[in-house]
Design a binder for these strands. Sequence first.
DNA 1: CTGTATCCGTGCCGATACTG
DNA 2: CAGTATCGGCACGGATACAG
Lengths: 133, 133
Amino acid sequence: MDKKAPAGNPSRPNPLPGCPMAAAFAAIGGKWKLTLLYWLAHGETHFAGLRRRAAPITPKVLAEQLRELEADGLVERVETGPVPAPVVYRLTPYGTTVLPVVEGVRVWGEAHLRRTQGEASPAVPMSCADMIA
Amino acid sequence: MDKKAPAGNPSRPNPLPGCPMAAAFAAIGGKWKLTLLYWLAHGETHFAGLRRRAAPITPKVLAEQLRELEADGLVERVETGPVPAPVVYRLTPYGTTVLPVVEGVRVWGEAHLRRTQGEASPAVPMSCADMIA
DNA sequence: CTGTATCCGTGCCGATACTG
DNA sequence: CAGTATCGGCACGGATACAG
């Protein structure tokens, strides 16, 4: 029974074995993963915290994505309390290595946003803000 | 405004309006888009060239992704000949702005590959190689 | 050579409800 | 609070064949 998978049990299989792009995509290509990593870069949070930040994500999908990120060694799940179990999610040291990528995507996305929508975008309309650790 | 930037006809709608991540993902989040941009960074190619490079992509999907990249102003389609129509695809100036992101993803993907598979990956097994312009 | 048409499988994601 | 269960849908991506 697979309990934890430190970098030997990738959540998603690489469709193109040996291709760096595909490998990266398998790890951080989920719809919400970059956003989750982005918010986790701000500091550890718990489940509900991520739920609030990460827009209209549903608990099921959030749990899935978190478990995949965990399986890829990017995110660490820490149980801080015994009973009410305020679990805390945080980036692993390895997880911090993706932050430049996350930031790169975010910055480019911002520029792209301004390009496509011009000035039509207010500041932080939904949930994603700017800044990064 | 912009001389030839479509930039008003995004191929994929942004599911989270105003979110840079989502915007970026809508533009370059396609399964093959990063790979295509990567190869296009090596120089202009034609349809068949991309087909060969981009692994087992099917013509339909290739055409789709290319049209989306074109709609987002990242890729330019140039017809070089009249009849046999050797069309050439190339990055637009704006398209080159994503190259850092592409490279970042690729580099991280390589590291991730080595992390997950150790030394089990031969050199360029399928189609993706290394290097970039 | 450069695509398009048609059909289809399934992976990804979502809503709601329920449990420790 | 932190998740899991179940169900479903739809879009994304794919295969094959055909056309300009």
